[in-house]
Design a protein around this nucleic acid. Structure first.
Length: 138
DNA sequence: GCCAACGTTGGC
DNA sequence: GCCAACGTTGGC
């Protein structure tokens, strides 16, 4: 199975990269959007996931990986169909990649983060993933 | 604080 | 099934 690449968005005032690192592992709960749910269900163990701070920060701050595939979201009603995955931090980027940098980078012009600005869980093409790593100093 | 994008809800 | 109203997200 080839590794897939993703990006998840979170407001740092709700749950920041630092909170995530402190926890060491987290259940990615609370997603209540059908498109995002499809992406959660498609995640496989070991997939690489960039962590983006929305609203305050507006930058990609770190890299995580999928530790557990989709299971019923404990914060949703039973049988509702909403799912969560478990993520573990891999490493912070040496330099956070800002939204402005992303918008200014030709390889990232079609990134879902820009094209579908409200989606909270999205796939990344391999080239997009590599470009974010490069801009982030990794 | 404003507003564009867009998903959801509910009347018809 | 359509679409207007409404709520939420998130950049600016």
């Amino acid at each position: 199975m080839t590794t897939q690449y993703w990006l998840v968005k979170q407001e740092p005032t709700d749950y920041s990269w630092d909170d995530f690192v402190r926890d060491g592992r987290t259940a990615w709960t609370g997603v209540r959007n059908y498109a995002a749910r499809l992406h959660l269900r498609a995640m496989r163990k070991g997939d690489q996931v960039f962590f983006y701070h929305s609203n305050e920060g507006k930058c990609v701050v770190g890299l995580a990986k999928v530790a557990a595939t989709a299971y019923p979201d404990p914060t949703a009603e039973a049988e509702s169909g909403w799912v969560a995955v478990d993520l573990v931090p891999v490493q912070a980027l040496a330099e956070p990649v800002t939204l402005a940098q992303i918008k200014a980078s030709p390889p990232l012009k079609d990134i879902a983060l820009i094209r579908q600005s409200r989606l909270s869980v999205m796939p990344l093409r391999a080239a997009e993933f590599k470009q974010l790593q490069k801009l982030g100093g990794r």
